[in-house]
Design a binder for these strands. Sequence first.
DNA 1: ACAATATACCTTGTAATACAAAGTATTTAT
DNA 2: ATAAATACTTTGTATTACAAGGTATATTGT
Lengths: 115, 115
Amino acid sequence: MEDFKKQFKKGVIELAILKLLSEENQYGYSIIQQINTRSREQLAIKDGTLYPILYRLEDKKFIESYWYTEDEGRSKPRKYYSLTEIGKERYLRMLKDYIEIEEGLREILQSYEVK
Amino acid sequence: MEDFKKQFKKGVIELAILKLLSEENQYGYSIIQQINTRSREQLAIKDGTLYPILYRLEDKKFIESYWYTEDEGRSKPRKYYSLTEIGKERYLRMLKDYIEIEEGLREILQSYEVK
DNA sequence: ACAATATACCTTGTAATACAAAGTATTTAT
DNA sequence: ATAAATACTTTGTATTACAAGGTATATTGT
């Protein structure tokens, strides 16, 4: 992948993860699939990328995890993550800041100061 | 500044710089002021951030520099930067990719899959 | 039944980069 | 004259998505 695509993704990935968890508790692999599908592959991430982010978010108490088996036939539980209260606050602040910065960039990209 | 604001800026700063240089040749300090003003401080960067980026862009041949004194009364020249041909291509590709990724993120932020 | 693929989680090492913080010197405003 | 802004430079640091490797289970096709 081109280097600047990587750069664009940094930071926004965390925002996307928090948003998905604000909708519903999910396990890691499910988050990857949702990000890949719903962003139409534009924000696609690898599992080796996601899991370290989840551990970091958990260390910071923005999310919590629990092992859970939903199917009868399934022997192995999956590790589910849920948003904590401060995680929800974090998500809302990130969203606000993201929108502000995106608008700032748009100003530069769209405008053209005639001298 | 909060850590995620930093993250959002990474990558997009370079895009903003290339855009400004695509409009007009400019010296470093002028770029800082334009970014700060036109983004309404949302994308504000420090000089210690800009100059290393300019050197990197020059190493990669995306921009070129020349010293120039425009005023009579001014003894010290300012270092002007201009976009090269491959710099222009880089800018257009970055712009396209940025827009795609931004749209991908919007899909995640706006949509809510009802199960 | 078997093979192949997808699912699901984990770990290590790396390259990239905005920033803080420091410096130097000139120019402009009070 | 003094302060503030301008203009450029350098060093060191923390962060983080990724590649690439691993293990094991579950599902699908033949």
